[in-house]
């Protein structure tokens, strides 16, 4: 008994959306890729976060090594040490990577990246080529390392006994205090962030303190923006504000403002108008170094072109970002970037 709602899913629609690859290889498309090619593709599309050797940069995931570490105090969970199925690597790279530009890796490139990751983990030799035909032969080292949830047998009987109510134990002693670590976000007064206000202080005076402070901050920010703007040309504060929102797409890799440091990408204070490839301490891609050598500068126009299509503008850039599609977003983010001096 059906309601007759919905319409048939067309074969090309199913092909577009059902990209799942299962442990037995079901769902793999035609194609192949070797370790050598994978090394190149990985360097271009993945290494800015995962490192040239899949070793992981900052806290981005480590993809290689760690075998034999799963009982250590600090286990290193990688494709080679932890993941049970190669199908998961293929599926995830193909559907979700690179971070910020998902679904831009072709089937052949995905075979190649997977082959490279298998090689990086010592699972295949450097002349290995992965394809749909030999995929089922790949067995990851930790394939046998998982078992289905057994809490119903291993834990529930232990924890389902009538609990003690009185004289259950000796008086307690404190063994660990969170304050000793000091890693909790704090309010300006040093208390844990979000601590409830003291209601024994009159509400009216408390808000008088709080409210003007907020306004003055807003005014200061506005003043800063206006000041910077007047140095350049007339910049619309609303555009800068819109640019701040657009910049959320960039924030994962790029920092701006006071104390900004290089991350996955270079810090961007003063970038508008600056020579390309010139931020101290950042390891630029070879094409970016070459362009810098040729005198490329991030003028408004050059930046707009780069942001619209990073890979098209500069083949081989480390910036694994698909680009900003809307011209007004590009204008806004440039206005925002221009508000930070070098």
């Amino acid at each position: 008994e059906t309601l007759g709602l919905g319409r048939p899913a067309l074969p090309e629609e199913i092909a577009a959306w059902d990209v799942a690859v299962l442990p037995d290889g079901t769902g793999l498309p035609e194609g192949s890729g070797d370790v050598f090619t994978g090394d190149e593709v990985f360097a271009e599309k993945c290494a800015s976060c995962h490192g040239d050797f899949a070793e992981g940069i900052d806290n981005w995931p480590v993809l290689a090594g760690g075998q034999g570490s799963l009982r250590d105090r600090r286990p290193v969970k990688t494709v080679g040490s932890y993941w049970p199925y190669a199908s998961t690597v293929w599926d995830y790279v193909h559907r979700s990577m690179p971070f910020g530009a998902a679904q831009t890796v072709t089937a052949d490139e995905t075979y190649a990246i997977t082959a490279f990751l298998l090689y990086s983990n010592g699972i295949v030799d450097d002349d290995f080529e992965l394809s749909r035909d030999n995929f089922a032969e790949i067995v990851l080292p930790n394939a046998g390392g998982f078992y289905p949830d057994d809490r119903a047998e291993a834990e529930y009987p232990v924890f389902s006994v009538a609990p003690c109510m009185d004289s259950c134990r000796e008086p307690v002693k404190v063994t660990k205090r969170a304050v000793d670590l000091g890693v909790t976000p704090e309010d300006p007064d040093g208390k844990p962030a979000g601590t409830l206000p003291d209601l024994t202080i009159a509400a009216a005076s408390a808000t008088e303190e709080a409210a003007p402070a907020d306004e003055s901050t807003a005014e200061e920010t506005a003043a800063e923006v206006t000041e910077t703007a007047s140095d350049e040309m007339a910049v619309d504060p609303a555009l800068v504000e819109a640019g701040e929102k657009v910049f959320k797409k960039c924030k994962a890799c790029h920092k701006v403002g006071e104390g900004a440091k290089n991350g996955t990408g270079p810090m961007l204070n003063g970038i508008v108008g600056q020579a390309a490839g010139a931020v101290d301490g950042f390891r630029y891609s070879k094409p970016m170094q070459a362009a810098a050598g040729d005198g490329l500068a991030w003028t408004h126009e050059a930046l707009a072109e780069f942001l619209a299509n990073p890979k098209g503008y500069m083949k081989g850039t480390k910036m694994s970002f698909a680009g900003l599609k809307k011209p007004d977003e590009i204008e806004a983010v440039i206005a925002y970037l221009a508000s930070f001096e070098g």
Binding site: L70, R71, P75, Y82, G145, F146, Y147, P148, D149, D150, R151
Partner: peptide, 9 residues
């Protein structure tokens, strides 16, 4: 060093 999977509840 082994891991439980499908620990949904």
């Amino acid at each position: 060093g082994r891991a439980r999977k499908w620990t949904w509840v």
